[in-house]
Design a protein around this nucleic acid. Sequence first.
DNA 1: ACTATAGTTAGCTTTATGGCTAACCATTCA
DNA 2: TGAATGGTTAGCCATAAAGCTAACTATAGT
Lengths: 116, 116
Amino acid sequence: MQLDHVFGALSDATRRAIVMRLCDGEASVGELAKPFDMALPSLMKHIRILESSGLVTSEKTGRVRTCSLQTEALATVEVWLAAQREIWEQRLDRLEMYVEKLKKQEKSNARKRKSK
Amino acid sequence: MQLDHVFGALSDATRRAIVMRLCDGEASVGELAKPFDMALPSLMKHIRILESSGLVTSEKTGRVRTCSLQTEALATVEVWLAAQREIWEQRLDRLEMYVEKLKKQEKSNARKRKSK
DNA sequence: ACTATAGTTAGCTTTATGGCTAACCATTCA
DNA sequence: TGAATGGTTAGCCATAAAGCTAACTATAGT
């Protein structure tokens, strides 16, 4: 479940649509294909990509393959994003503190100038 | 700032590393390039891709181009993920409620069977 | 003015992506 | 058993991605 592959899988609108569909519950390949004006083999490729990214798993019983969402993979992405957010927010905080410090200095300088 | 392009941009480890670096503050192309064993033009391509995805902006002053992170683009991805999460969690809630219902029925059936 | 620095452009490979058709299993249903 | 259904495999095409080198432009420093 590599971040590369998960992001890659989500970079295609068709695949995101499939993911969105699967958020609502399992579905067969045929069901997944319906909304798309696309040949089945093409759609199958997308499903394969989703599977190899770990976002989707599927199982075949009889002649129908049922796909389901693997939410942990999506969670992985959320975790990564959250980590980045934390870093840049910490930086913004430091920046803000620095600006505050500058403001105070400016004030005290102003006082000094006045008192001269 | 298309979701396609943002996800696509993040699907490459080099570009994610650049994003991570930029979380810590602005950087020039040269600074960004240092950690990578990669020819400059190749790295520039990555920067271009990050720019066209909206994740990064850059400005050239003198001969140095300074890049900075555009956190809104990352936020867009977070929003999308959160939306999916909400959908599937709602479904899980419904499922849980359904299971609870089944359990209760089972209990009442058990009572009936006993009382017979 | 000369050199070094910082990017940029152009053009080339190799490999991956996204789509197609046509032909092929493998189950189910009549 | 024969036909319909649901996927699957194989192979083709066009375009884009990720890397390279070599040559070029434009500023900064001496």
